[in-house]
Amino acid sequence: MNARVLPYVLILPVTLFLCLFFLYPFLLVSKQAFSTGSGFTLDNFREVTSYWKFPTTLRNTFLLAAAVVPVQLALALLMATMVNKMQKGRDLILYVWTIPLGISDLAAGIIWLAIFEQSGFLNSMMNGLGIVDKPVNLLTFQNPGLVFLAIALAEIWRATAIMLVILVAGIGLIPKEYYEAAEVFGASPWKRFTRITLPLLRPSLQTALVLRVILAFEIFAVVAALGGTLFPVLMGETYAYQFDLLNSGAAAAMALIILAISIGFTLIILRLLRVPKGATI
């Protein structure tokens, strides 16, 4: 077959699949979001954004992302640097650290629920140590901070590894000679990290952050398991519109709002971590 045509023929099945099962439904959802039955309208958006719970869900989602993502980034960088320095057992450690990746987010939420609930491990431990007289219900509306903390912990435990694997691959690509040159020219280990590792890791950091931030705005199952309705987030509300209120127009509008936020943050991340023009990393 003609070598110029062949690549396009090879990607054709995937393209068709994406058009059929992604692009087409996406267009349907968009159409749904912008109509109430009688032509183009922004009514659905007006309805969801003017609902009293909307500012809370928006704030909660952002707060959670703001609390979780930086911690995950720092942890992933630390873990990737450590793994990279290891001589033996590197793969084993990497496998162990990425185990949470293999667990669904709902299962992860349930695991942490088993720790925090009234009859959970944490209560048993505190009771056993005599810190509390009888098991207390921790995840209630009286302890919003604790609910937030439990969700954040579960998210950090669950989804740090996705950043870790990307950063480990990225750090592995940085030539050793750069570190040796930096060392000879007087850079301390910390300076080598900030002046060599971080800038040269920019492409990997972009990927890891974009992926993680998008997932953070889509958080749903972990919150549902640990917070129920105590901590409403954007995705939870979308679910409620679709399945509790049977208002698919409003659900579609919520989905597009989440998409818009994700795109916005992706652009910000790409801009902040851009490689200077002319530099090749």
């Binding site: 030539p175 750069y178 040159a181 930096a182 000879v184 800038p199 040269l200 530099a279």
Partner: peptide, 14 residues
């Protein structure tokens, strides 16, 4: 001391 490396090790991001 200062050193010149075989592959130059000129930092690509600077």
């Amino acid at each position: 001391i200062a050193m010149v490396f075989q592959n130059y090790a000129v930092f690509p991001h600077l």
